[in-house]
Every structure is written in C-alpha cells, then in structure tokens.
C-alpha cells in the first residue's frame, strides 16, 4: 500500500485538482480533456485498489479489515461518481466537483495507508 503507485496516485490527483480548480476559477465547463484526465486518475486509483485487494489475501492483512474494505469501496467509486455528477453539471461547477473529488482522493489514499500499516501478522 505504501509503494510508488500510491505516491504517483496522490501526485497525479493533486496536480489534476489544481488544474480543475483553475478551470473552474476561469469559468470553464468540464471539457472532454478534463473528464478524460479524471477518468485516467480513476483508472490509476482502480489499479491501486486492485493491488490492495490482492494484498488482503497475503500475509499482512490490515487488522481493521472492515474499515479497510469500506475505504477501498469508497475510493474506487469516487472518481466515477464525480465524473457522473460533473457530466450532469456542464458549467464551471462541474469542474469544481471534479476538483474537489481530486482533493479528497489523496486523503482517502493516505487513510488507506494508515489503516494498512496496522497489520495482523
């Protein structure tokens, strides 16, 4: 959970958040690029979640598995939900929704890392 993939996800999410918030500030509706970029981030997150799920069957299971599972479901659903909502809101606020989602995702990844660091042997 602590590998370069998480770091990459967090960095990409933060950069994308800055871009999307700028777009919202400039009064731009989500473009195809904005939506696609968020979808790419969503794919990155999906890979991360998949790796974490595979890890659940390994030796170092998080001791708080239910919470970990709940966070995994929330995390993987986050980008798709934001994209869905942003498509319903083709104004600057659609970009704000995407931007907020990109700000929340790093927090979710950090929480996952926190929970994963307390393991049962």
């Amino acid at each position: 959970m602590n590998g370069p993939l998480s770091v990459a996800t967090i960095v990409v999410a933060l950069v994308l958040a800055a871009w999307l918030l700028l777009r919202a500030a400039l009064n731009r509706a989500p473009s195809r690029f904005d939506l696609l970029a968020t979808a790419v981030l969503g794919a990155l997150v999906a890979v991360l979640v998949l790796v974490a799920v595979v890890g659940l069957f390994g030796d170092h299971r998080p001791s708080d598995t239910p919470t970990f599972g709940g966070y995994l479901i929330t995390t993987i659903a986050f980008a798709p939900t934001a994209i869905y909502l942003a498509r319903m809101e083709p104004t600057r606020w659609g970009n704000l929704i995407l931007g907020v989602a990109c700000l929340v995702l790093p927090v979710l990844v950090l929480r996952l890392q926190q929970i994963a660091s307390v393991t049962v042997a």
């Binding site: 809101e89 606020w93 659609g94 704000l96 907020v100 989602a101």
Partner: peptide, 11 residues
C-alpha cells in the same frame, strides 16, 4: 437547482 449548490451537496 444550481451548480454551486450541487457542489455543496456533493461535499
């Protein structure tokens, strides 16, 4: 009804 309201609702 409004975009900003939807962002607020999302959060």
């Amino acid at each position: 009804h409004t975009g900003l309201g939807r962002v607020l609702l999302f959060i």
